[in-house]
Write a protein that binds this DNA or RNA. Structure first.
Lengths: 131, 131
DNA sequence: GTCCTACTTCAAGTCGACTTGAGGTCAAGT
DNA sequence: ACTTGACCTCAAGTCGACTTGAAGTAGGAC
């Protein structure tokens, strides 16, 4: 597989070098090795970065994301954890959907304040009880 | 409407008093007034807190959430902004859905490492390009 | 040989969102 | 009168996720 310098990874991923070093330090991405001092990555780093980005925007911490990578070690626990995370995500998706609908409504609602709009308030109540 | 002390709000919302004070300072919730030194809230605070909670888990900053409340001031801009936020949310929801599917798959996938699983990698690629 | 560019380390700084702690007020109970 | 408990303010601390800056190295162009 092709070897990549950090600059190349920065260019192709848009992730700053400082962040890449930080992720490596945290064990989220692994450089293949070193050529002298400088890190050498391979193509798989982009997949990991994609997963990190998506995971972050899903509200997972870097530690949690790191756990998802841990292929070695107890796979049993790992898989249960993944399913758990999927459930968490499901709940989040529901809440976001409610929020999105609320915003869409508020954007066209004639009420002076969104908090005075019955529809918006109902939506909020649902979000509060459901989440 | 019924007047509530901060302790009551804490009990019914689960939000710590320190956080309530902080939100008030940031202009996210307004106490109705003061009775002596102590803050007095009314029932609408729960709706606001619900919106804040949902908004936070949707990845909005407190500043952004504060803007959503601003009923006064240019309503035109406000509504466009709300629609924009709704679009952002839509994108987020798509990404989360992809992530959730990826996790669900990984939870049952027989591959040793999730990164070796073709399905998982395809899902990631989609997430990366779509996000 | 020295300049440039791309990399390196390590410590410290930043930012958002809170939390914690010290010290004070006030009303009610004993 | 005094203690208790719920509240207050304000400054400082914490935590996660990075970023920034200073100082150094390694390899190629001139």
């Amino acid at each position: 597989m092709q070897e990549l310098g950090i600059g190349e990874v920065v260019r192709r991923s848009g992730v700053p070098a400082s962040t890449l070093r930080y992720y490596e330090e945290r064990g989220l991405i692994g450089s293949v090795g070193r050529r002298g001092l400088t890190r050498v990555f391979d193509e798989t780093v982009f997949e990991r970065l994609a997963l990190i980005t998506v995971g972050r925007s899903a509200g997972f911490s870097l530690d949690e994301i790191a756990l998802m990578f841990a292929a070695d070690g107890r796979p049993r626990l790992d898989r249960a954890m993944l399913a758990g995370k999927a459930d968490e995500l499901d709940a989040t998706i529901v809440r976001l959907t409610v929020m999105r609908d609320g915003l869409r409504h508020a954007a066209v609602c004639p009420a002076a304040s969104h908090l005075e709009c019955p529809t918006f308030r109902r939506i909020l109540r649902e979000a509060g009880s459901g989440g």
